[in-house]
Simulated assay, not measured.
Amino acid sequence: MFNSDKPGKIEVLKIPSNKQELVFKLASSERPFALMKIGDISEWIKNKLSEYELIEKFENESIFLNINSSEDINILMGSRSFYEGWDSNRPNILLFINIGKGTDAKKFVLQSIGRGVRIEPLPNKRKRALFLNNNREIDQNLFNSIKENVEPLESLFVFGTKADNLKEVMETLKQEKTEVLLGDLFEINPDIKDKDLLIPVYCDSSKIIVEEKEVVKYPIHPEDYEITKNYFNFIGDQIALCKYDCDTRVLK
């Protein structure tokens, strides 16, 4: 977890020109293990981290923006940053510190848990490995090699610093409404159960609408008609053909 084989003091790395992120690592390792992202790190540095060694990094880039591709960061610390406009499949362990009471806290709990249940065992595959295996979307040998250990990684573990907080979290989850599948709202007409379902087949026609004898007209406002006519007169036939990929017969 701490990316080090030896014990060491915790060092705090500050990114130049970044007022929202702090990186933590052990003095015995070059690899960081934790990232904090909050609204303003100034007060935290002053009030909470005065006894830690503060080192300014040379790289002036955001760690949080590249968190999905980072193999070093194992602990994320923060609050609203982790559920507002953030899409990641990294977290599967959540620890709520003094959270879970009040309307705003319930909203925070639900939204942050929503960030924690996202998984991606294979690139662009947002389903659990067992589901992918049943649908033959994963190599069988690969699945056999990970099936004994993958379930904890695909599960979300939620902890809290106080029993009351955990109870509040569970009550909030119970109150969340289950999403109704649209297909379950349809009723099958019993009179058509034994009848064939006719599916229309379409094919390209050699004719276009303007060649029909009785063309269906769609009335538009005279001003809109004049604007459209002036526009096509201005761009000319050649540009209209290239820009809108229309048939030359339309321009006659």
Rank of each mutant, 00 (worst) to 15 (best):
1 M>W: 03
2 F>L: 04
3 N>I: 01
6 K>W: 01
8 G>M: 03
9 K>G: 12
10 I>M: 04
12 V>W: 04
13 L>V: 00
13 L>R: 00
15 I>T: 05
18 N>E: 09
18 N>P: 03
20 Q>R: 11
24 F>S: 00
29 S>I: 04
30 E>M: 12
30 E>K: 11
30 E>I: 13
32 P>C: 00
32 P>T: 04
39 G>H: 09
40 D>Q: 01
44 W>V: 14
46 K>A: 02
49 L>K: 00
51 E>M: 02
56 E>F: 07
57 K>H: 06
57 K>C: 09
60 N>L: 05
60 N>V: 11
60 N>D: 11
62 S>P: 03
62 S>K: 03
62 S>R: 07
63 I>D: 07
63 I>P: 06
68 N>K: 10
69 S>C: 08
69 S>R: 07
73 I>S: 00
74 N>Q: 09
75 I>Y: 07
79 S>I: 07
81 S>N: 13
89 N>A: 05
93 I>M: 04
93 I>K: 06
100 G>A: 01
101 K>V: 09
101 K>A: 09
104 D>C: 07
105 A>T: 06
108 F>P: 07
113 I>S: 00
115 R>N: 08
116 G>P: 00
116 G>Y: 01
116 G>Q: 00
118 R>G: 06
119 I>Y: 04
122 L>K: 08
125 K>W: 05
128 R>T: 10
131 F>N: 14
131 F>I: 15
135 N>Y: 15
136 R>A: 08
137 E>P: 04
140 Q>E: 15
140 Q>T: 13
141 N>G: 10
143 F>Y: 15
144 N>L: 01
144 N>P: 02
144 N>T: 06
146 I>Q: 05
146 I>S: 05
148 E>S: 14
148 E>Y: 09
149 N>Q: 09
151 E>P: 05
153 L>C: 08
153 L>I: 08
155 S>E: 06
156 L>Y: 01
158 V>M: 01
159 F>H: 04
160 G>R: 03
167 K>T: 12
167 K>R: 02
171 E>W: 11
173 L>K: 04
173 L>D: 06
181 L>V: 11
181 L>R: 15
184 D>N: 13
185 L>S: 10
187 E>Y: 12
187 E>Q: 14
190 P>L: 06
191 D>T: 13
191 D>S: 10
195 K>I: 10
196 D>T: 13
197 L>E: 13
199 I>Y: 10
200 P>G: 03
203 C>R: 12
207 K>T: 09
208 I>L: 05
208 I>C: 01
212 E>S: 05
213 K>L: 04
213 K>Y: 01
215 V>Q: 03
217 K>N: 01
218 Y>W: 09
222 P>Q: 01
228 T>M: 14
229 K>D: 12
230 N>C: 07
231 Y>H: 14
232 F>E: 11
233 N>F: 12
233 N>D: 15
237 D>C: 13
238 Q>T: 14
240 A>T: 15
244 Y>M: 08
244 Y>N: 10
248 T>E: 15
248 T>S: 14
249 R>A: 11
252 K>W: 08
